[in-house]
Design a binder for these strands. Structure first.
Length: 161
DNA sequence: TGAATTTGACCGCC
DNA sequence: GGCGGTCAAATTCA
């Protein structure tokens, strides 16, 4: 039980670390004028809040991006072909650029044109999913062209076979 | 040559 | 039947 919570906390911390790296890159490149840093800062703070909440309580905290409530079709995504998963969590992040390094190594396994969107959605899976017994996946989709906005949806699934 | 990516097909849910 | 998500073979690249 606690291992599940630890995994979620670690995942949230890694996500926050990745966002911090992105923020650092943005600041290093003086991209402040073209890229808003506020969403990144909020994401970092949210990641820490999520991690702390995961450590303190098995129940996820209310969260503006913790998307059970904002996901368009959360039931479908959580049911599809993900067998034996407990505590499947979604974490959504809208950024001006796709995160180059968010703490995980991702391997792309699919790309689809979404009916309700003009842009294609890319599907990534943790490259070490088997080693870490993790079903973490993420979906990256451009939702806006100018200025570019990429919606990254993380799904942290832990299997107990 | 091995690893990563691409892409069409398949599966299950609504 | 339509759609989104995943699989797996084919292709590309270092």
């Amino acid at each position: 039980m606690s291992s599940k919570i630890d995994h979620k906390a670690v995942a949230a911390l890694l996500h926050g670390q990745g966002c911090a790296n992105i923020l650092k890159t943005v600041l290093d490149n003086r991209e402040i004028s073209s890229v808003s840093t506020e969403p990144l800062i909020n994401t970092i703070l949210d990641s820490f809040s999520l991690a702390l909440s995961s450590l303190n309580s098995p129940n996820p905290p209310p969260h503006h991006q913790f998307s059970s409530q904002n996901m368009a079709r959360p039931q479908k995504s959580s049911k599809k072909k993900i067998c034996g998963i407990e505590g499947l969590d979604n974490y959504r992040d809208d950024s001006p650029s796709p995160p180059p390094d968010d703490g995980f190594t991702w391997r792309k396994y699919g790309q689809k044109t979404i009916k309700t969107s003009l842009y294609q959605r890319c599907y990534y899976r943790c490259a070490y999913a088997k080693d870490q017994n993790s079903n973490a996946t993420k979906r990256v989709q451009m939702i806006q062209d100018s200025p570019p906005v990429y919606r990254t949806t993380y799904l942290y699934g832990t299997t107990y076979m």
